[in-house]
């Protein structure tokens, strides 16, 4: 099913993500990479200071949907799959891959590229390429 092309709201939403990343860098000197933030608060924790930073930032993320609902109403959301097995496999690959590769869309794709990191550029090419390839295979070869 097609989704509407939304250049303006996507650009503005992206700008907010960028603003948040700058805030985190300005206040705590940290990269707003979500996989890294989660990874550092999972046991065993190497540095205790990661815990309050991670927990509060994540708590903020969790408040976004209720606050949005309160002020702007419903959020458009269409699940790709309601198959719990597929969701589980997808989550496992996302969790392992992003932590093993030291970053996800936010850490490499937004923060890393904005810092001019070559590592992040290579990582972004890698996950974009496999992402495109995966959806191509799912939709055109497997017909899902």
């Amino acid at each position: 099913m097609e989704t509407e092309f939304t250049p303006i709201t996507s650009l503005l939403g992206g700008a907010l993500i960028g603003l948040s990343a700058v805030m985190l860098m300005a206040t705590y000197g940290k990269i707003a990479g979500i996989s890294g933030i989660i990874f550092r608060i999972l046991p065993p924790v190497l540095r205790k200071e990661s815990i309050p930073v991670g927990i509060l930032f994540i708590f903020g993320l969790l408040l976004a949907v209720p606050l949005w609902n309160l002020f702007f109403g419903d959020i458009e959301r269409q699940a790709v799959s309601d198959n719990y097995f597929i969701l589980g496999v997808s989550g496992l690959l996302v969790g392992f891959g992003s932590s093993y590769g030291n970053g996800c869309t936010s850490g490499h794709g937004v923060c890393g590229l904005s810092r001019g990191s070559i590592r992040s550029l290579i990582a972004t090419f890698s996950f974009m390429f496999t992402g495109f390839l995966t959806v191509y295979i799912l939709r055109n070869i497997l017909g899902l």
């Binding site: 496999v89 392992f96 590769g101 970053g103 496999t130 995966t134």
Partner: peptide, 14 residues
């Protein structure tokens, strides 16, 4: 780096 990001992209696509 490349393998991890690649695996992440597969899960992201799924």
């Amino acid at each position: 780096l490349i393998f991890g990001a690649g695996v992440f992209g597969i899960g992201w696509g799924i």
